[in-house]
Design a protein around this nucleic acid. Structure first.
Lengths: 216, 216
DNA sequence: TGGAAAACATTCCAATCGGCATGTAAGTTC
DNA sequence: GAACTTACATGCCGATTGGAATGTTTTCCA
């Protein structure tokens, strides 16, 4: 782990690879390590069993360092929310690279939402959400961030499907998001995966009909 | 709370109202008190902050009594799941008293599911569900009970709408349940209530179209 | 009516929690 | 290179946790 490279001897090299990490660099490193560890704990242990000690252990960071960056546990959680949301947003953006147009977009859009809002990271979100119900401070931290994620994703679809009526798109989007979250919950406690896939397929069919105007 | 009735004086009356509670009665009383208190804690404090000590305090039961009935905390939680599910089921059954037939049933059925799966009690369910994700023992206790609730409610609708194709009913039912759970999650962290109502209205319109066969 | 059993109460415990206090090392600034 | 700030480390604290141990009351049954 801390093994020194035997080939490098001169002071200049020593300065380059080991020392002289900027304060900003050090700060960012340990902060990221803590936030990643927090998310890992949330997904793996759940909110109730996530302790700062465990987070520090996984991050390879001392308790003192943690407190230096996040005075309280709630503060750490709040920061984790944003970190987490950013990662999900990046995931969605990356996957949205080449989406088709027209009817195909409806189907693939639903898949995209599914992946983004029911993936591994969403388990951590769920933990924080549920915890936030009875924790006003956490709720205050989550609400704006989550709202931003929802809206930015919606805007992404609005860009991808400019020909689609706003009202229709909005409805389909939010219905899909909420349905996805319900299904994600079902998936987490080991519900029937086959039925979930069937439901998703059916929903695609229905959404397609709505898109074509067969409903409204 | 423990005030004695001043009018009653003779031994017979004393025997009746204070003493001579059957063992089964005593057992049932404190068990129910503990389970109700557990649910109250879950809805009010959340799973993470729910301690057996708090439960005992609210139930007005000593720690020893609690341990007599539920050896471990997990055991208490598992029992609370069933208790909770029974209460929800009773709630649904009571509300299903007089449902109309035909298209009207779709709309009111959705409302019924909403009330049952997104009501006050559902917050406690949500807590347990999320906790169960990282707690195998709890998950094992929840799964069958929840499955039974889902199926029995579905059967209720099958009885109420015998003319409806099974596949259509199943699809609409499960879609509604999962959508409801997603929306319930949104409601818990203070999402926009107006938008939720709009979505529910839109979903009713869509479900009605599916029911009429405009989609498949 | 008396003793077994079930229900309930009290006390204690080791473990763990989040957070504070204090000390050291690394980087920055002049 | 010395003063200063930031980053990190260690040890400790009171509070609270779930659970075990032990004692008391109530009901039951022979």
């Amino acid at each position: 782990m801390t093994a020194t490279r035997p080939t490098e001897t001169d002071a200049l090299a020593r300065t380059r690879d080991r020392g002289h990490r900027t304060q900003a660099e050090r700060r960012e490193r340990t902060r990221a390590a803590l936030l990643d560890a927090t998310i890992e704990c949330l997904t793996e242990l759940g909110y109730a069993r996530t302790s700062v000690q465990e987070i520090c252990a996984r991050a390879g960071v001392s308790k003192g360092a943690q407190q230096h960056h996040f005075t309280t546990k709630a503060e750490l959680m709040a920061a984790a929310v944003e970190h987490l949301t950013n990662r999900i947003q990046a995931e969605i953006l990356a996957a949205s690279g080449e989406l088709p147009e027209g009817p195909k977009l409806v189907e693939q859009g639903i898949d995209l939402i599914w992946q983004g809002f029911a993936g591994t990271l969403s388990a951590a979100v769920m933990e924080l959400w549920v915890a936030a119900r009875t924790d006003a401070e956490l709720a205050a931290a989550i609400k704006p961030v989550d709202k931003a994620l929802g809206r930015s994703t919606l805007e992404l679809f609005q860009t991808l499907a400019p020909e689609m009526p706003r009202r229709t798109l909005d409805t389909l989007y939010w219905l899909t998001v909420n349905l996805t979250r319900g299904l994600a919950l079902d998936a987490q406690i080991g519900g029937d995966a086959t039925r979930r896939n069937q439901l998703l397929t059916e929903w695609k069919r229905i959404a397609l009909a709505v898109y074509r105007g067969d409903v409204a």
